[in-house]
Computed example of a mutant assay.
Amino acid sequence: MRKDIILSGVGGQGILTIATIIGEAATVAGLNLKQAEVHGMSQRGGDVQSNLRLSDETIHSDLISLGEADLIISMEPMEALRYLPYLEKEGWVVTSANPFKNIPNYPDEEELMKTLNSLPRVAKLEIEDIAKENNMPKCANVILLGMAAKFIGILSPEQLRESIGRVFASKGEKIVEMNKRAFDIGLEAAKNR
């Protein structure tokens, strides 16, 4: 089994943390893993993208070819659309519906949502709003990971949840539990998708 995932967003949104959690879970599960990261501006606000390839067989390249991604996980709706050419026909887009307007010519929000809604396989949610409502504003990325968990397939939601515990262990039990709760919120939100 193989799973090719593109992670995208804007600097500071936690895309690389999502990649770390998935990668750590894959390593513990004994899967082969290749990752390639592309950082935009090194400061908060530049686009950030990561190719994450997981397989129970040998992986020869760390880059995902056009039309080959099984899943796009995006912290920002415009960034999700940027990588659509990489998505395979049956692939899914899991994205935040909260725009991060970091450029002066950001697309019209209504048109952006219309384009997202026209996709055959999309799950979107206002994760930033949910994170704030639950007093966990820095956990929106883990809510998104929870949403994406059922679409990852090669790893179970429980394997990802356990990985959260290991990745955040050095930050203390309170941070671990908050991130596990964020993951569960996203997992629950995706049940109806």
Rank of each mutant, 00 (worst) to 15 (best):
D4F: 12
A182C: 09
E57R: 14
P104G: 04
H60I: 11
T20P: 01
L54D: 04
M178T: 12
L66T: 11
E68W: 06
A25R: 07
I18A: 04
I130K: 02
V94P: 00
G12P: 10
D47L: 06
N32H: 15
G146F: 00
N51Y: 14
W92A: 05
A149Y: 04
E162H: 14
K150Q: 11
V122I: 15
V48D: 03
P99L: 11
V48M: 08
T17L: 15
M78T: 12
F183I: 06
A19N: 08
Y106W: 12
I130L: 15
P85W: 10
P120R: 05
M78K: 12
Q13C: 06
D62C: 03
I6M: 06
A190T: 00
E128A: 13
L54F: 10
E126N: 13
E76A: 03
L66G: 08
I72Y: 08
A36H: 08
N134F: 07
P99N: 11
A123I: 07
I5N: 00
D4A: 10
G91K: 03
L119T: 02
E111N: 15
A148E: 05
G153V: 11
S8P: 09
E162A: 15
S156Y: 04
Q49T: 10
I15T: 14
L116Y: 04
L125Q: 02
I59Q: 02
L125T: 01
L63V: 14
I185N: 00
G91N: 09
A36I: 03
L81W: 03
A123T: 01
G46F: 12
I22Q: 06
K180Q: 14
P137G: 11
M1N: 15
N135V: 07
K132S: 07
D108R: 10
E128S: 12
I175C: 09
A190E: 01
Q35H: 06
G30I: 15
D184E: 15
V10W: 01
K89N: 13
M75V: 01
K34V: 03
L81K: 05
L54I: 12
A69P: 06
R181A: 09
S170K: 13
I15L: 12
S42P: 04
G45H: 08
R53M: 12
V167H: 11
N32S: 15
K174F: 11
L81P: 08
L71Y: 08
V10A: 02
P85T: 12
N102W: 11
I103E: 07
R193K: 04
A69Q: 03
F151H: 13
P107Q: 04
L66C: 07
K171P: 01
N179G: 11
P157Y: 05
V48T: 12
P85K: 09
I143G: 00
